[in-house]
C-alpha cells in the first residue's frame, strides 16, 4: 500500500487540491468514521491545538460540524460570533484575524460572504486556514463529504454521471462539486433555469440542461440545491410554483436516473420546493448520511492540516 502525504498548508478550495490530496482526505475520513461510532467519541490526536471558528455568515450545521469534529479530536475550539464581535464596531477583517492570531490558534475555519476571503487571510496569517464557504466561490468540505457519501453508497468515485440541479450560479456547493468531479473525470450535468445556470459553466467541462428530465437521465448521483431565497434567488425565476413545476425532484423524474442512483442535498432542504417530501425521506436519499460524514471529513481536514505555517508574525 502506498503511503500518502498531504502537503497543503490550507484548505481554500477544491481548486488547489490534487486527486491524490482528495483521496488522502477521504481515506483519512474513513478511518475517523469509527471514532464517531464509539461510546467515548474522542481521541487525543489534536490535544493542545486550538481551532477558531470564525463565521461571518449565519450557519448552524457547518459550524456545529466543525465544532464536533475539533472536539472529537481533543482540540480546543473557540466560536467567534461575528454578530457580537468588534466587526460591528468597525474593525477590519484583517485586524480581527490579527487579534485572534495573537492568541496563537493553529487553525482558523472561516465562513465569509466575500469570495476569496480565506485566500486573503493566508497572505498574512500564520495559522492554517480552512474555507467553510466563501461567497459564491467554494465550500470544499461540503464537496468532500459529498464525495465520501458517494463512495460509500456506490463503491466508486469514477465513471459516474453527476447531475446538479438548481441555483448553480450562486452555489459554492455546486462549484466545489463541479471542480471535484472534473478532477476525478466524472460526467457533470448542470440543470436549472437559464438565469441560474449560465452557459459559461460549460467551460468547466459540464453539460448544461434546462430540462430536468434530460439532465438526470442515467445519472448516478442527483444533487439538489436549495433555492436560496435569502440571496435573492427568487429574482431569477417568476415564481416558486413555476420553479417547483419545472425543477423539483419527484419519484417520476428520479426514476429516469440510473437504477443505483442516490439523491443528495447539502441542506437545509425546502420540502416541496426543490425536493418532494416523499423523495427526501426515501431509501435513495442520503441527506442524513451526508451530515454524519461531514464530521469525519472535517476531522480529517483538521488532522491533516498542521497549523503554525510560519514561525513568527512580525
Amino acid at each position: 500500500m502506498k503511503e500518502r502525504t498531504f502537503r497543503q498548508d490550507h484548505l481554500l478550495g477544491i481548486e488547489h487540491l490534487s486527486v491524490d490530496d482528495i483521496e488522502t482526505i477521504l481515506e483519512t475520513a474513513e478511518a475517523f468514521i469509527e471514532v464517531s461510532s464509539r461510546e467515548v467519541k474522542k481521541v487525543p490526536a489534536l490535544k493542545g491545538k486550538t481551532v477558531v471558528n470564525l463565521f461571518f455568515e449565519n450557519s448552524t450545521r457547518t459550524r456545529s460540524s466543525f465544532e464536533i469534529a475539533a472536539k472529537r479530536l481533543s482540540a480546543d475550539l473557540i466560536n467567534f460570533n461575528s454578530s457580537v464581535s468588534s466587526l460591528k464596531k468597525g474593525e477590519t477583517l484583517k485586524d480581527t484575524v490579527l487579534t485572534l492570531e495573537a492568541m496563537n490558534p493553529h487553525i482558523i475555519v472561516i465562513r465569509h460572504s466575500a469570495s476569496g476571503s480565506p485566500h486573503y487571510l493566508t497572505t498574512f496569517a500564520r495559522s492554517s486556514i480552512v474555507n467553510a464557504g466563501d461567497g459564491f466561490h467554494e465550500h470544499p468540505t461540503q464537496a468532500l463529504l459529498d464525495a465520501l457519501t458517494i463512495q460509500q453508497r456506490l463503491r466508486t468515485l469514477r465513471g459516474l454521471k453527476i447531475a446538479i440541479v438548481g441555483d448553480i450560479l450562486h452555489s459554492r456547493v455546486a462549484l466545489s462539486n463541479i471542480l471535484l468531479h472534473q478532477k476525478l473525470g466524472n460526467e457533470i450535468a448542470l440543470i436549472g433555469p437559464p438565469s441560474l445556470v449560465p452557459a459559461e459553466f460549460a467551460k468547466l467541462g459540464a453539460t448544461v440542461y434546462y430540462d430536468i428530465r434530460r439532465g438526470v437521465r442515467n445519472a448516478d448521483v442527483v444533487m439538489m440545491l436549495r433555492v436560496q431565497a435569502e440571496r435573492g434567488a427568487r429574482n431569477y425565476f417568476p415564481s416558486i410554483r413555476e420553479y417547483r413545476n419545472l425543477f423539483a425532484i419527484d419519484r417520476k423524474i428520479f426514476s429516469l436516473a440510473s437504477r443505483r442512483a442516490i439523491l443528495m442535498h447539502p441542506g437545509p432542504i425546502n420540502r416541496d420546493v426543490e425536493i418532494e417530501t416523499s423523495m427526501a425521506d426515501s431509501d435513495e436519499s442520503v441527506i442524513l448520511q451526508q451530515v454524519t460524514n461531514g464530521i469525519a471529513v472535517r476531522m480529517a481536514v483538521l488532522y491533516l492540516l498542521k497549523g503554525e505555517i510560519h514561525e513568527t508574525l512580525n
Binding site: F6, T24, T28, A31, E34, L46, L73
Partner: peptide, 23 residues
C-alpha cells in the same frame, strides 16, 4: 487497532502520519 491518533509524537512530524482503520 490503528494507534496513530494516540501517538505521543504527532506534534513532531513534518506531515501528519496516515490514519488507518480501527475495527
Amino acid at each position: 487497532l490503528d494507534i496513530t491518533m494516540f501517538r505521543d509524537d504527532l506534534h513532531k512530524h513534518e506531515q501528519q502520519p496516515a490514519v488507518k482503520k480501527t475495527r
